[in-house]
Design a protein around this nucleic acid. Structure first.
Length: 261
DNA sequence: ATGCCGCGGCGCCCGCGA
């Protein structure tokens, strides 16, 4: 069984103690991190290698930044989402994980927020989603087992928000955003959490402000998207919600699934 | 209508996040 997780840590350097403890508790084999907020040379690679993980980083100063951690060797590492050579934001990294039972491609995805909607940030989000859709179509054509794990900054449906009415004009829940996300899913990939849990009220993000955590005013925006070959091996998916209640928590919590590989 | 909170940075406010 292979355990794969996604976690937007909101600064790896601020979250390192939480990460190390959670790696021990949750025992993931592969972890996709987002918002590491540092360059590769500032990433705490040695601390993470010391607890048994290989590390691949696509860093950026101050903002964004993604990484993949793996107990198994990382091969064919590719940083950056294809489709726009002028895009300098570090939001995508891909690698192949090789185990004795077989290989699995994994991507760590940090999809643009897109707010404010009236700014250039929203069309950037939509273009980025088009590029992700194109890359996903390429990977599907290879008929590989793959997982696109990340912070998608998309609330897929009303049941994925405590107060959906608060989000109707937001880039995370705008009809155009959700339509684009549905186009991506309609290529033939599976939302691992929704494949395992039908009930509403499961969230991965609670704002630091206005007592969102205390009021359970959350949204589900971090997703593990599986190729058909991965979905057929899915054996459960959970959100590690309790992490959010700790001191100095990230505003996101990990989501993880088990694949029979 | 805005800030709430937290993060990084040639930092003592500001941009950014969602």
């Amino acid at each position: 069984m292979l355990r794969i997780a996604s976690w937007n840590v909101n600064s790896i350097r601020q979250r390192l103690p939480h990460l190390i403890e959670w790696l021990g508790d949750a025992a993931p084999d592969v972890v996709c991190l987002q918002e590491i907020k540092c360059l590769a040379e500032a990433f705490p690679t040695a601390d993470i290698e010391a607890v048994g993980y290989n590390v691949a980083v696509h860093g950026q100063k101050t903002f964004n930044g993604v990484a993949i951690l793996s107990k198994y060797p990382l091969e064919d590492v590719a940083a950056g989402l294809p489709g726009d050579d002028s895009d300098e934001q570090a939001r995508y990294i891909e690698a192949v994980i090789s185990t004795a039972e077989g290989a699995l491609r994994v991507a760590s995805v940090y999809l643009p927020n897109g707010n404010p909607v009236a700014s250039e940030k929203y069309p950037y989000k939509l273009r980025w989603m088009d590029r992700l859709k194109a890359r996903t179509a390429e990977l599907l054509a290879l008929e590989e087992t793959f997982v696109l794990a990340g912070d998608y900054n998309i609330i897929p449906a009303p049941e994925d928000a405590r107060n959906p009415a608060d989000w109707v004009s937001d880039a995370l829940f705008l009809l155009q955003s959700r339509a684009k996300f549905r186009e991506l899913m309609a290529l033939g990939i599976t939302d691992a959490f929704r494949a395992c849990e039908a009930s509403p009220g499961h969230y991965t993000f609670w704002d630091y402000q206005a007592g969102a955590w205390q009021r359970d005013n959350g949204i589900r925006i971090d997703h593990l998207l599986l190729s058909p070959q991965a979905a057929s091996r899915l054996h459960g998916c959970v959100i590690d919600k309790s992490i959010r209640g700790r001191e100095k928590a990230s505003d996101h919590v990990p989501v993880r699934c088990d694949l029979a590989i």
